[in-house]
Design a binder for these strands. Structure first.
Lengths: 171, 171
DNA sequence: GCCGGAAGTGATACACTGTAACAAAGCCGC
DNA sequence: GCGGCTTTGTTACAGTGTATCACTTCCGGC
């Protein structure tokens, strides 16, 4: 599914109907812009961690990223990765998948709503991100009914993505 | 909030409007019934773990439970607790809160829908459980639109529960 | 009652995930 | 250049969850 990176990057080569992942270049550009706006540093390490999250086939864990960035002569410790990830999450460029201890690049440029649904394919392991006004409004009603004031929420659905279902049917 | 156990147990002493937690005795009874139905063993350890989850002020982690059940002369290893928790989750008697690595007793007798919303109070640490037909139907639409077949989903909202908000306002 | 397989538990070790604390290096304004 | 801040490196450690194997308990059939 969309977690698989496009090795070539013309702007829109996907014809599938579901939500799609932003191009790596676009994410990079957004990161630089955000950092300029907020006057924070977009350092080499932070860029590399973001790159790693974007480029991974499947959403990586922090230790996967650390390993990926390490090479003979340069070791990147997990703690450094965690710090970079915290930074990137603060900016909304990366999301954490609580049910998997994994990280995904933010597929939308949603400066606003911050209310997303993660679709986790149990076959291919890919994670897609989408929004849902219906869920958002329904949840609002429910929370009001319960007398609960939300700060933020996570919604993660595990199942089978369209691509894997098709693949299974053909087999 | 409802995570605080009632030390005395008349059936319905709560006058609050939000969803409420089942009485310990009721959960116990449900557990025994379920085990009889499915012809599986409701052993002493499993009962104790369930008790611990039900009786805890705040949703405990597996290690908390292990510690609670251990005493001089009898040590319960975390691995045993995990096995019991897996068993109880299989039966739907306990839920895992992914964003907290904690466990809560299932507040409903929802043999069916299996679609619940967890309300996590960041002040008191209590976790309430409720259902939301609105969210359920909205999510169904969204998933269909995305071509995604769900197996199960988690929805966890962090914020402030009514009780804590009132307390803060009075202060 | 006994026996044999299945299920459950104990115990140890280990892998994975995340954080604390402090030192060293880099950036920036003055 | 100096002094303060942010970032990174390094080490150690806490917390969470699993693999493995041995031992016990349970349960159905004889």
């Amino acid at each position: 599914m969309s977690a698989a990176g496009h090795s070539h990057d013309h702007a829109h080569d996907h014809a599938h109907g579901h939500s799609c992942k932003a191009e790596p270049a676009a994410i990079l550009a957004r990161a630089e812009e955000l950092c300029r706006e907020r006057a924070v540093q977009f350092t080499a390490l932070r860029r590399e961690v973001l790159d790693a999250v974007v480029a991974s086939e499947k959403p990586p864990g922090a230790y996967d990223i650390a390993e990926r960035l390490s090479r003979p002569g340069r070791r990147v410790a997990p703690v450094s990765v965690y710090r970079a990830l915290d930074f990137l999450m603060e900016l909304g460029l990366v999301h954490r998948i609580a049910s998997r201890n994994a990280f995904v690049p933010c597929a939308h440029a949603h400066g606003a709503s911050e209310n997303v649904v993660f679709l986790i394919c149990r076959t291919c392991g890919g994670i897609d991100e989408t929004t849902s006004p219906e869920v958002e409004s329904g949840l609002g009603k429910t929370l009001k009914r319960a007398g609960f004031t939300p700060a933020h929420s996570i919604l993660e659905v595990e199942g089978d993505c369209g691509a894997c279902r098709d693949k299974a049917r053909r087999a």
